[in-house]
Nucleic acid binder design. Structure first.
Lengths: 147, 147
DNA sequence: CAGTAAGTTTTGTCAATAGTGAACTTTTGA
DNA sequence: TCAAAAGTTCACTATTGACAAAACTTACTG
């Protein structure tokens, strides 16, 4: 693999890490974004990223659960292949949007404990998250893209 | 402090941690959301949260840098007091919005390396983040609230 | 149905990070 | 100017989590 591309993968993995992914999962995702062909086997990724089978297994399962990557098998081949799913980014943001509800609910729990009267600070929190919970999915619909 | 409230603080801290704050900073912020009075000294927080001076110092500096908390001094008092800043949540989201640019830029760097022709996957990434980079600040402006 | 390749799980090691407690510096009110 | 309180910094410890390596399980292919 081109050294410049290798550096890009590592940098990108760091970004993904900041967003909450484990380091190895970030590396795999970054690699799959630029790999040729798009479908890669665990073995190939292990060589490209100098990572162990075990680490890849965990990372790939995570990325698959998150629906960022799909697992597929070419007829006649023994090994699974993996590729970034079309619409992965939209899905990632939808997922984030869903966590907004957690924040809103937590604010509401707090309000129930301290009472609405004493809850100016919590109300600000609840209202803003509720606003985004409503508006973000609408915004995503306006984005011109697939699935 | 009421045990139910104590549990709420701990739960909320966990949520904040998932969003990227260090644990202690999350506890402090959660506590400041429900504390009476709103302005609390480090000593009071140390007792309420069973935390050391040193840990509080770090957490409070972080929260102050992030502009989520403000530091103030009542005349005649020796110790600083801290309170959640009005508009803290909006500010937090604006900050997140700013990181969208990082993702877009990283996708563009990748495109420069693999070429636009081979870059369907990266283009999807770039386009979605660019879209949000444009739309999110607009959305925030529509939220009826302070600074 | 064997033999082998792929994938998962487990175990042990290592690095990173948070937090305590103590030493140190700064501030402030007398 | 002095003394005490507040705040910061540092050294150490404990916890966490990621990863490699190897043992184990599953499932394909001939």
């Amino acid at each position: 693999m081109d050294p410049a591309l290798k550096r890009w993968v590592e940098e990108t993995a760091l970004l993904f890490e900041a967003a909450g992914l484990p380091r190895m999962a970030g590396r795999v995702l970054a690699f799959l974004l630029v790999a040729e062909p798009a479908e890669q086997s665990a073995k190939e990724m292990g060589e490209a990223l100098s990572a162990s089978k075990g680490a890849l297994s965990g990372a790939l399962n995570l990325l698959t659960r998150l629906q960022l990557v799909e697992r597929l098998r070419r007829p006649g081949e023994r090994a699974d292949r993996y590729a970034v799913r079309p619409g992965a980014w939209r899905r990632l943001l939808l997922e984030k949007a869903r966590t907004l509800a957690l924040y809103r609910e937590q604010a509401e729990k707090g309000l129930a404990l301290v009472g609405e009267a004493r809850g100016e600070r919590l109300r600000e929190m609840r209202d803003l998250y509720a606003f985004f919970e409503r508006e973000l999915p609408k915004l995503l619909e306006r984005f011109p893209g697939e699935a």
